[in-house]
Design a protein around this nucleic acid. Structure first.
Lengths: 394, 394
DNA sequence: CTTACTTAGTTCGATTTTCGTCAAAAGCGG
DNA sequence: CCGCTTTTGACGAAAATCGAACTAAGTAAG
């Protein structure tokens, strides 16, 4: 028994593109499938496109997601930037834009900025506001996902407990998902990129270090939504490094972008931040290269433990520092393959992210898409639609 | 729309115990619920028991799992022991028995032993063989769960790729689930014990150290079924300890039962194995106490990292060494609360397991029960039953 | 160009499933 | 004993689903 939501799921995943195929895959009668499809078309989620290639008989009519009328907005909020992306529910990027923006300015100005950019992008892409079904936002700090409230975020003063979704839901008829930025990145990697993995770690190495976790095909957020905070795991042999968290020997204090910049500066090679370090590496500065490779080994040390514990099939590295991935990954791989168990590393891939600059925003958009297209939510929406339409028709 | 399987799920979880309650919970018509229940009763999975207490009107008839006719067998295989437990599908222990048995003897003798014990326990409990719907087996090594084949298990020579389920499925009409022993323990803790947690780590500290992972309410096995192998994570400041895995500084080489026994012996207090260490601790030997507490700190060091990464709501400690849990847990807690982030430790509980000696077998049994009662499997079984019965009746 | 064949989609009556109401059952309280 | 409440079973009504027949739209062979 497949509900309309399940049908839509098959269409959106590309598992079935025509009525006949849907009938074969679900095992339901063709007439029933046709009726389900009609419902979805009437509701505006599915469209009939061109007729496909014949396989010896009447050519099928291809079904597609109604990408013209259904979009989402993905937002990547960083400490000093804000990227907003407009995507259709097929996952295609329609338009995006990045601006410098200090998250420390507080919720209202930042959310107003997002709001403005959303309208700009909609105008640019020629889509109406009503086409936006959901907004996904990735923020650089812990969030209670269910309510969309940041929880004591270290680098987001003024955001603690702020109900981010309310800003938009009080103005527009759409849904808002707020999550940690690394979770968005991880989701984007498995659902948008080509890395098909049910168990994946997305390691973001920027100023700090964080990790998005896909466990059994689903995002793992942990009990308090604090999962993935690997920046403060202790690195063997680095007890002298003091971390902003108050402890010593944290991974972030050893291999984070800020830490590398500081160490490089101290060694006589001035570097303002992580990006500066990356630039030095690109230009072949031997000291910077050595430091980054060493950082890779430190990160690898922590990841080796996590590989034993979690047994992922892929580790994807992103973030500012990942731009220097040849040297960084060399160090990471070196230690992982040395320290992790053969069974766990046997088929493990360690690779840089394929998503570019817009990765975070695309991942956040994917979060929104997954929510909009979730079979349960579709069925609920259709039921509400039918209940609202039927009495009005009488 | 709740299928018969879902109905059974509600009954087995205790969420609804009468037809009226089921109707309220599922939102389906009472007549529909009654029909579903009839199906389950006819199939022999549910029984009507005594009438419950009236709440002012006709007293309801209480529905229960048909525990008389449906049992499972849970098996805990250790390096040197084999515990077999007979449970009903309600999770109640009917009979169990433990024998010394070297797993190195190889698959056939060991499985024959299990087979014999199963029949003994059945006779003892007065249940027919046909009542056994599934067997769950926890083994001390990595297993490909889907096929029930061990994968290069270090302490199980001769078991590599051996198809354990076949031994039983070729003889009897039942299903066999084989998993790592720590996974069984973890499952037993959340489903059998009182620790209700969607994200839990069960840390087994015996000769070696392993960890069962519950992520989002489900067992996390990882890509190769190798997840939870925390015994070979590197402990900061222990690089001198050589491990049997070939590396140095592994947790197991520092805090495992075998390592502790060796260190204690070296210090002039002879101890044969982990259990001997525990005995010494119980008798108040100061050296042993100090060592165990130190081991707790080392384990805590690794767990602190995993708490940051995984953000569980509970850590449960079991295994031989956990018998000395006052001192062990003191060390574990000490380091975790010092090194993990406040948000992650805020509501974290660290406690010894409540399951006793039979924990492993009970957990393995729970694995079998969960499989038997899984809504999808129930619906499949009912469909097959109906398809087989209907044509015969004509 | 026609004809046979194949596959896709639609229509509509038959069947099955589910619902909702009604009545009977079974206890409580006065 | 009688009204009240709650549970359960029964049965006709309503809805969902199926399946077969039919139409549509192509390919391939002669």
């Amino acid at each position: 028994m497949s509900s309309p939501g399940d049908i839509l799921d098959l269409i959106s995943r590309g598992d079935a593109g025509t009525r006949a195929e849907l009938a074969r895959v679900t095992g339901m009668a063709r007439s029933t499938v046709a009726q389900r499809v009609d419902t979805l078309i009437a509701y505006g989620l599915v469209e009939e496109h061109e007729t496909g290639a014949s396989t010896g008989g009447r050519p099928p009519r291809v079904l597609r997601l109604a990408t013209e009328r259904n979009c989402v907005v993905g937002v990547d909020l960083g400490a000093t930037h804000c990227r907003v992306a407009l995507m259709d529910i097929g996952g295609r990027l329609l338009a995006d834009r990045e601006d410098p923006l200090r998250i420390t300015e507080g919720p209202e100005p930042v959310l107003r900025h997002i709001d403005d950019r959303m309208h700009e992008l909609l105008a640019q892409a020629g889509r109406p506001l009503a086409a936006v079904k959901a907004i996904g936002i990735g923020v650089p700090g812990p969030v209670e996902f269910a309510t969309g409230r940041p929880v004591n975020p270290p680098i987001m003063p003024g955001w603690h407990e702020y109900p981010i979704p309310d800003y938009f839901t009080s103005r527009y008829d759409l849904e808002v998902l707020v999550d940690n930025d690394v979770n968005a990145l991880a989701l984007g990697e498995v659902r948008h990129g080509s890395t098909a993995a049910d168990n994946l770690l997305f390691v973001k190495i920027g100023t700090g270090i964080g990790c998005g976790i896909i466990a059994g095909g689903r995002l793992h957020r942990g009990a308090q939504g604090a999962a993935g905070d690997i920046g403060h795991i202790r690195v063997p042999g680095a007890d002298s490094a003091a971390c902003r968290c108050g402890n010593t020997g944290c991974l972030e204090a050893v291999a984070g972008g800020a830490a590398l910049a500081a160490r490089l500066t101290q060694a006589g090679v001035p570097a303002a931040d992580g990006r500066a370090v990356v630039d030095l590496v690109s230009s072949g500065d031997p000291m910077a290269v050595r430091l980054v490779r060493e950082a890779g080994r430190d990160i690898g040390d922590v990841l080796a433990g996590l590989v034993n514990f979690f047994n992922p099939e892929a580790i994807v590295v992103g973030g500012v520092m990942a731009a220097a991935h040849e040297h960084l990954l060399a160090g990471v791989r070196e230690v992982i393959y040395q320290r992790s168990l053969p069974l766990a590393t046997h088929r493990l891939t360690v690779a840089p992210t394929e998503a570019g600059e817009a990765g975070g925003a695309l991942g956040a958009g994917r979060l929104a898409i997954d929510h909009v297209l979730a079979p349960d939510n579709i069925d609920r929406a259709l039921a509400a639609h039918a209940a609202g339409a039927a009495p009005a028709a009488r």
